[in-house]
């Protein structure tokens, strides 16, 4: 658990880069620090591993103030991933991945085993890359190695500063998916900086939206989208926030809430979608096909009904009204 308690950062001669920030990151959660460029995301992140000092307030990890920890030990216990991956070009991939275990003086055998484990986790062949150097890898591979390095000593916390920001959109989405998969295995407590609302919705268990160093809203993605606290938040998430929000829900949710339409009677040769598909993609399939409906299949590939644009509209309407009674409708479903 990471607790930010009235955290403020003032650079010399500058305004407040971080201004009285309070929030708590629960164990195993990904919290996305979101906001426009210059709003203080990086500064806030770097205060956690003491790359930036705290002007006033305090940050504590498991109720222990980081000010009272040795900074070298603190950093070795926190994984750190940056946008430009920061791999050491003079070291082989194996050396890069196992650098923290080296600093911690693990023996060679243990380090090598850990290396193999991590490479398998990030989907790169351990033998093939062991003696390669970072510049021989693609941007996406380098970033994966950056993640592996951060995980090497199995730190409970990861700090990630726009880790996929420099990658092209297709590779970025792929790495986001892979990372979420990895997270289901490693269950780290993660602070993740992003300026991209879509990325934040996708990656975050919670989002801290910042502006000029202040937190505008700290909420789960669905709540941020449906109930923005002020104009800045609504503007930042955009007019299409309902559509964005649809990526958090699947056809199964829709089935549960409003049911599916009947199967069309005449022969149907359009696309089918799986019940686990999210509603944002389903909607774009509907639009792209110009079809009235798409057929939904269950996990046995059995056709169980159809989705229409009208049904999705009704689902949205129900979500917005349903919000007041319980948190159920906005529970995170399959990511």
């Amino acid at each position: 658990m990471i607790k930010f308690d009235h955290v403020t950062k003032m650079f010399q001669g500058g305004a407040k880069a971080v201004d009285d920030v309070n929030f708590t990151v629960e164990d195993g959660d990904i919290v996305v620090l979101l906001g426009p460029s210059g709003c203080g995301k990086t500064t806030l992140l770097r205060m956690v591993n003491r790359l930036e000092s705290i002007t006033s307030g305090d940050i504590s990890i498991d109720n222990k103030s980081i000010k009272r920890l040795n900074d070298i030990e603190l950093r070795r216990a926190i994984g750190y991933v940056i946008q430009s991956n920061g791999l050491f070009p003079n070291m082989t991939i194996e050396s890069n991945v196992t650098i923290v275990p080296q600093l911690l003086r693990w023996d060679a055998k243990k380090r090598h085993n850990r290396y193999k484990e991590l490479m398998q986790l990030i989907g790169l062949d351990p033998e093939k890359y062991a003696k390669r150097y970072p510049h021989e890898l693609s941007g996406g591979q380098q970033q994966r190695v950056g993640v592996a390095r951060a995980l090497a000593a199995d730190p409970p916390i990861l700090l990630m500063d726009e880790p996929f920001g420099a990658l092209d959109p297709i590779i970025r989405e792929k790495l986001q998916d892979e990372f979420l998969q990895i997270q289901t295995e490693v269950k780290k407590t993660i602070l993740f900086v992003s300026h991209d609302i879509d990325e934040a919705i996708k990656m975050g268990d919670k989002i801290a939206l910042l502006r000029d160093g202040k937190i505008m809203q700290y909420d789960r993605p669905a709540d941020l989208l449906t109930h923005p606290k002020n104009d800045f938040v609504s503007q930042f998430i955009g007019e299409d926030r309902m559509i964005k929000g649809l990526s958090l829900h699947t056809i199964k949710d829709l089935l549960r809430e409003v049911g599916l339409a009947e199967m069309p009677h005449q022969h149907y040769d359009g696309k089918t979608v799986a019940g686990s598909q999210n509603l944002r993609n389903t909607l774009s399939i509907l639009m792209n096909q110009g079809a009235e409906q798409v057929i939904v299949t269950d996990h046995n590939e059995q056709e169980i009904g159809a989705v229409t644009i009208d049904l999705i509209q009704r689902y949205i309407a129900k979500q917005i009204k349903g919000k007041t009674d319980a948190s159920l409708p906005f529970e995170r479903v399959v990511r």
Partner: peptide
């Protein structure tokens, strides 16, 4: 960025020099 990464992962100044900066 390399210096930043080196500090961020917990290298001491001398380790940074020997393992990253000089090489």
């Amino acid at each position: 960025d390399l210096k930043d990464a080196a500090i961020g992962i917990g290298m001491k100044p001398i380790q940074r020099l020997v393992r990253v900066e000089i090489p």
